[in-house]
Write a protein that binds this DNA or RNA. Structure first.
Lengths: 253, 253
DNA sequence: AAGAAGTTTTCCACTTCATGGAAAAGTACG
DNA sequence: CGTACTTTTCCATGAAGTGGAAAACTTCTT
């Protein structure tokens, strides 16, 4: 049906490796992917020779440096494609629109289109922040199971950025379940006082791969109808997702 | 020889796509890689179905979003592996050591080990800066042909950060050819007054994939023997490179 | 220190699966 | 509307990947 098996399997191995935190042994990979040992080993050797995977001293395998380069180029591409969709969000809301992804434990702002207003958000493309105090962060965390979220916030802590920042594990998990129910996330001055944001997810079939948001002065954001804004943004984000990964489903061939 | 052909070829396609700026048509890929049309098409379909490649409206292909995720995880891994080497650099120089890569048009600081001194550099992991005003940036640019460098600085401009910043195309190209000759790069307060850096390349066989540097107060950096420091850092960077991509060459098997 | 239990790695006969040439379909250009 | 180019599909052929099981290592146990 789809494609070249060995390539598909190699990608399975790579993705499984990523899911396991970037590091795993052959048997772990075998049990997760269901592929036979020999096959995985051969695949890994191929990836190893190309630098896409690396072997640690304890003979386990980990994701390799070659992916960093490709990932960087791809990220730039995504930022370019997002531009027109972000522009639509600006048009809809009048506020600055952002695209962000979760990279490791950090939120990275990948692209932005500025609001035409005089008072508007700073350019923050490239900026890295912790997820807990942003709307885009909550969107991306909400896609993860609670135990992963807890693991992440235990690694990073939940530094208080403002009086409104959520700094409590319980409160965060509750907030995330609200996000899951609503389909959008808010940041009401949790990262910076006076700045409010509303973020929506970008789905890639199964997963949430990115988040898009609009942000601006508290009064202006609060003046908008949240549900309506969320609906509008979600529509745009879904269109973008569709362009990103157009899972073609032709009935018979 | 090495590994699974279809996987190797898929990686060739992906890498070629990246070299062409993240976007290309099948025939361009065919002429670059030497692979037959049918094969490339099949490979691309496989990658497409998985989101590693994306098809634009004009039927050309581009790198896809799935790479961003993998790249992010891999980047975190690299940062972890670099830690001990950065620590050695700190030990050697007494100054804060950094690992940086070129991501799109920006330098990203991926990892850092702080100097034990009281007066030392800020933590700047995750920070993005333009290449022209940093030592790591010059190292990474120096690996590129002049026309690519010019294209990049025409896109980004060369904003003056301090009185010492190089803001002239000619001067930059000269500086880069000096870097190529010396094997290390300097930043003498070009990004921030009073802060000097010395950077060395991390080679992956052919390419420079990253740069490592030490940075600190001008007086302390200038007090060190540059050539000797460069030699020491280069040794450490080479060891790191070797761990990153240990091209195994066993004579007979 | 020696054995046990768990890895990872190598090997090889089998046949599935990828191959690639060339023709068909689709697009852009004049 | 026809020409030139690119992308996509097709299919007989055999090269190339497969995967079970055994060998070589490592690490944990007693």
């Amino acid at each position: 049906m789809s494609g070249v098996q060995s390539v598909d399997r190699a990608l399975d191995v790579l993705e499984t490796l990523a899911e396991m935190g970037g590091e795993a042994g052959i048997s772990e990979l075998a049990s997760r992917t269901g592929l036979p040992y020999g096959t995985i080993h051969r695949l890994l050797r191929t990836l190893l020779a190309r630098g896409y995977v690396r072997q640690e001293s304890d003979r386990r395998y980990a994701l390799g440096g070659a992916l960093v380069r490709l990932g960087g180029v791809a990220e730039r591409m995504v930022a370019v494609w997002a531009q027109p969709y972000l522009a639509k969000m600006v048009e809809l809301s009048g506020e600055t629109a952002n695209l962000a992804v979760l990279e490791g434990d950090f939120i990275v702002y990948v692209a932005q289109v500025q609001s035409p207003r005089r008072l508007r958000m700073f350019a923050e493309v490239g900026r890295r922040v912790l997820p807990h105090s942003t709307a885009v962060g909550k969107i991306l965390l909400a896609d993860r199971p609670d135990r992963e979220v807890v693991a992440l916030i235990e690694r990073t802590g939940m530094p208080r950025r403002t009086a409104n920042t959520i700094v409590d594990h319980e409160a965060m998990l509750e907030a995330l379940s609200a996000v899951r129910a609503q389909g959008y996330a808010l940041d009401l001055g949790e990262e910076e006082l006076g700045v409010h944001c509303l973020a929506v997810p970008v789905h890639d079939g199964e997963r949430v791969v990115a988040a898009m948001s609009v942000s601006g002065p508290a009064e202006r954001i609060d003046a908008l109808d949240r549900e309506e804004l969320a609906r509008g943004l979600r529509k745009i984000a879904d269109d973008f997702a569709l362009e990103l990964a157009p899972r073609f489903s032709r009935p018979g061939g």
